[in-house]
């Protein structure tokens, strides 16, 4: 099967919250020093979903990533995990995209790739947490979509998806080609084996500039935005935790219960 996975490079969401800084003059996040970026968590799960299909049915996985200053060791991780090809939409013109301009550029790149059976995306990116790009790509390509997948199988030429809902899951069947967004419940992405890392080191990513994918320059990056970011800021934490102390853990625990009763919380 021909599989495509869209991945995004983001600042490491596991970095300690205290290291998170916003430059309010530019409305941008200041990457914490010394913490390398990562592939967005759910996008790695999307790679895992594609690998599971490839394990079962065989095929080829093409990874597409859009951005600028993409760190090769970071964006090559899906290759090390077992993907076959990496296409980077890398150019300053792609910077400051929003969901619209990102989905547009990715959909144009996918049109250039040509035939495919399934496109996988993460349910949302760890930076803007929007969860729009996957569905935007599907709409722009005119293909069906299923979101929040915890299991994806290819059965009798159809894709069978278990979609997470608050009290369980739904089973959805879609014809191909289609787009699936995946959620962490799909399971931990596999580790990249040493052999995979060595293989990935030898693969040269293909870089496509805006002119290579035939995009309208007014529709990509900052110029293609449909949302205006007025302000980016860190919410003020009240940070008034009353620490209850005791001679030992058990004593502190008892005093905590008494304090909660006193404060009418219990």
């Amino acid at each position: 099967m021909e599989l495509i996975v869209c991945v995004k490079q983001v600042p490491d969401p596991e970095a300690p919250p205290a290291s998170f800084k916003v430059d309010t003059a530019t409305n941008k996040v200041v990457p914490p020093p010394g913490v390398p970026p990562v592939i967005s968590t759910f996008d790695e799960t999307a790679v895992e979903a594609a690998l599971k299909i490839k394990d079962a049915k065989g095929g080829k996985i093409t990874v597409v990533s859009l951005g600028n200053n993409l760190v090769r060791d970071v964006v090559k991780k899906p290759l090390a995990m077992g993907a076959d090809q990496l296409i980077l939409l890398e150019d300053p013109a792609y910077e400051n995209s929003d969901s619209w301009s990102t989905a547009y550029a990715l959909s144009m790149a996918i049109k250039k790739i040509g035939s495919f059976d399934i496109i996988f995306c993460g349910r949302q990116a760890a930076d803007w947490d929007s969860g729009q790009v996957g569905l935007g790509i599907a709409e722009l390509l005119g293909i069906p979509s299923v979101t929040l997948a915890k299991k994806v199988e290819s059965v009798d030429g159809k894709v069978r998806v278990e979609r997470i809902v608050p009290d369980g899951f739904e089973v959805i069947e879609s014809p191909t080609p289609c787009l699936i967004t995946v959620t962490n419940e799909l399971g931990e992405p596999r580790y990249a084996p040493l052999k995979g890392i060595m293989k990935a080191a030898k693969i040269q990513p293909v870089v496509w500039k805006p002119q290579d994918i035939g995009v309208d320059p007014s529709q990509i990056g900052a110029s293609g935005r449909r949302t205006k970011l007025v302000k980016l800021f860190q919410p003020v934490k009240e940070g008034k935790c009353e620490m209850v102390e005791g001679e030992n853990a058990a004593d502190a625990a008892v005093k905590l219960a008494l304090r909660l009763r006193e404060a009418k919380v219990l």
Partner: peptide, 20 residues
């Protein structure tokens, strides 16, 4: 969590939970 909580204790939950 102590930046978010109103009340807290620093303790190993295994020792704190049963008496709590």
């Amino acid at each position: 969590i102590f930046r978010e909580a109103r009340f807290g204790i620093v303790a190993d939950w295994k020792q704190a939970l049963p008496p709590f």
